[in-house]
Computed example of a mutant assay.
Amino acid sequence: MIPRVLIVAGSDSGGGAGIQADIKTVTMLGGHAMTAITAVTAQNTLGVQAIHPIPADVVGAQMRSVIEDIGVDAVKIGMIGSASVAHAVADLLEQLDVPIVFDPVMISTSGAVLADAATMGAFGRLMHVASVVTPNVPEMAALGGEAAVLAHGCHVVAKGGHGDGEEIVDRLLSPQGEIARAVGRRFNTVDTHGTGCTLASALAAGLAGGMGIEAAFRRAVRFVRIAIVNAPALGGGHGPIGHTLGVVPFDAMES
């Protein structure tokens, strides 16, 4: 059966991040993407102009519709929108026994705040049900550091894109220590909108398809880097990456 990935995240009208990036990623990796939209945003490469949160009961209804009929092999959580949504999502996910990837989205690439203090306070429940949490450098700091996140019993992908230096180091951690790391050169580009969403969705697609955590991590990092190289140069700000431009078949990527 085709891997079924349920994506719980916000919509990006510019198509570079959020649900739109998630669907493209899962589709390119051979999965079936399903969605529970948590917020509708007016957004482009220059920033976020408006946010309309979806009520928690509607988010939950979207999730139940998918779970009860189509079924789910993995879940990816992105932008949550509100504390009430975070708790509603956690209530449902506590009943599932599938891999869960949580990208603790707080600030967009353009700098817009996408999670208030109450929402971030509810992230603890989502980290507790997650198999993997994928924070960038500032998100990791806001969550209390690596030890605080690992204390929830999950794996962590500590992303290095917001760090300094000519190389980016992404690390896969477990509560027992580092499992793997991926090192690559830093690209001189502003077209990185949606990289975090894409990495988390690629990881979820791999886990949904039965890949081990390390193999899914390495393929996800590789997918993001290829997509950055193939960014279509759209808009006047932080442009989207190229999910579907020049991407090689993924069996070849594994060689």
Score class of each variant (00 low, 15 high):
residue 113 V to N: 13
residue 113 V to Y: 11
residue 113 V to C: 13
residue 113 V to T: 15
residue 115 A to F: 14
residue 115 A to W: 04
residue 115 A to N: 02
residue 116 D to T: 06
residue 116 D to H: 11
residue 117 A to G: 08
residue 117 A to C: 07
residue 117 A to E: 15
residue 118 A to Q: 13
residue 118 A to D: 15
residue 118 A to G: 11
residue 118 A to C: 10
residue 118 A to F: 13
residue 118 A to P: 09
residue 119 T to E: 12
residue 120 M to L: 12
residue 120 M to A: 10
residue 120 M to Q: 15
residue 120 M to E: 13
residue 120 M to R: 14
residue 121 G to M: 14
residue 121 G to H: 09
residue 121 G to P: 07
residue 121 G to T: 03
residue 121 G to V: 06
residue 122 A to K: 01
residue 122 A to G: 11
residue 123 F to R: 04
residue 124 G to L: 10
residue 124 G to A: 06
residue 125 R to H: 14
residue 126 L to H: 02
residue 126 L to A: 01
residue 126 L to V: 04
residue 126 L to R: 05
residue 126 L to F: 04
residue 126 L to C: 04
residue 126 L to E: 05
residue 127 M to R: 00
residue 127 M to A: 07
residue 128 H to Q: 14
residue 128 H to F: 10
residue 128 H to R: 13
residue 128 H to E: 12
residue 128 H to G: 11
residue 128 H to M: 10
residue 129 V to P: 01
residue 129 V to L: 09
residue 129 V to G: 05
residue 129 V to I: 06
residue 130 A to E: 03
residue 130 A to M: 04
residue 131 S to Y: 10
residue 131 S to N: 08
residue 131 S to E: 05
residue 131 S to A: 14
residue 131 S to Q: 05
residue 131 S to I: 08
residue 132 V to G: 09
residue 132 V to H: 08
residue 132 V to Q: 07
residue 133 V to L: 07
residue 133 V to E: 05
residue 134 T to P: 09
residue 134 T to D: 05
residue 134 T to I: 06
residue 135 P to T: 00
residue 135 P to N: 05
residue 135 P to S: 05
residue 135 P to D: 05
residue 136 N to W: 07
residue 137 V to W: 09
residue 137 V to R: 06
residue 137 V to D: 06
residue 137 V to K: 07
residue 138 P to T: 02
residue 139 E to G: 08
residue 139 E to Y: 07
residue 139 E to N: 04
residue 141 A to P: 08
residue 141 A to N: 12
residue 141 A to I: 10
residue 142 A to D: 02
residue 142 A to Q: 01
residue 142 A to C: 06
